[in-house]
Simulated assay, not measured.
Amino acid sequence: MTDTLSVARTRVWDLPTRLFHWALAFAVIGLIVTGLNGIMEWHFRLGYTVLALLLFRLVWGFVGGRWSRFAAFIYAPGSVIAYLRGKAHPDHLIGHTPLGALSVFAVLALLILQVATGLMADDEISASGPLTRFVSGAMVSLATGWHKAQGKWIVIVLVSLHVLAVLFYVLVKRHRLVGPMLSGDKLVIAGPASNKNGNGNGVAPSRDDAASRTLALLLFALCAGVAFWVASLRL
């Protein structure tokens, strides 16, 4: 008797992760627009929003749903090479692919750096970050230069590449990327049905129940409180 493959709808992206994703996307676009047009008061507000979101994602990467945890998409170099050679592990097609994971970590790291330098930046005209008075003048100058020049353009390039990559996967490779990030579910092809995971296809779904959503809400409230406190330091 041979095993047969099964296809089942599986919860991959929990609601907190989905809300984070779209909130961060709109906030970053808003930061770019307000920064380029000198709308600094809104630029700061969106910056504090991104700070709260990034703090939340760092915590949620350890306690969130199965496929939202960093442990689920930290790949060894060998896995990345195998994926590039077309020898993907089945898990690579459920959550973040190895290339997608590299993109996620790159974007998070860059945004953390951009927010951090923004908090220490001072244009000496009308806008200064809340942490400028706690660091040296040399650090303020370095942070301002990075935030207004290299950092800004790298963010724009990464955002553009991310959009192009999504379009490539959707239009050329016919991968459903946008739908699962809206609904949270993916159609996963796996081995024989498994009662252990409760989803009928042997793939462990992400936890996305009332308890986990309540935890996420409390964590985000805490992160928002930290961002609000940082904002209050601005003179």
Rank of each mutant, 00 (worst) to 15 (best):
A221D: 01
A190L: 11
A204I: 11
D208F: 08
G191K: 09
V203G: 06
P205I: 03
P192D: 05
P205F: 03
L222F: 11
S194E: 13
F228A: 02
S212N: 03
A216D: 05
L219C: 07
R234G: 01
R207Y: 07
L215R: 15
A227W: 06
S206E: 06
R234I: 06
A227I: 07
T214D: 02
N201F: 01
R213M: 08
A211V: 06
A190G: 13
A227G: 10
L217T: 13
S232H: 03
S206G: 10
A231K: 10
P205R: 03
A231G: 05
N195K: 10
A193P: 02
V226I: 14
A224M: 09
R234T: 10
L217K: 08
A227Q: 08
A204T: 15
A211R: 07
G200C: 07
G200V: 00
N201T: 13
A210H: 12
A210D: 13
S194C: 09
R234Y: 03
G198I: 11
N199Q: 12
P192S: 08
L215T: 15
N199C: 11
A224V: 01
L219T: 00
L219H: 00
A210S: 11
P205W: 02
N195H: 11
N195I: 13
G200T: 01
L215D: 01
G225W: 04
C223N: 00
A210K: 10
A216S: 09
L218Y: 01
S212G: 03
D209S: 04
A231P: 08
A210R: 14
D208P: 05
A216E: 14
A227V: 07
G202Y: 06
A211D: 02
L222D: 02
R207K: 15
L219F: 04
V226R: 00
G191T: 01
V226F: 01
A216R: 10
V230E: 02
A216K: 01
D209H: 10
A204K: 15
S212E: 09
P205D: 11
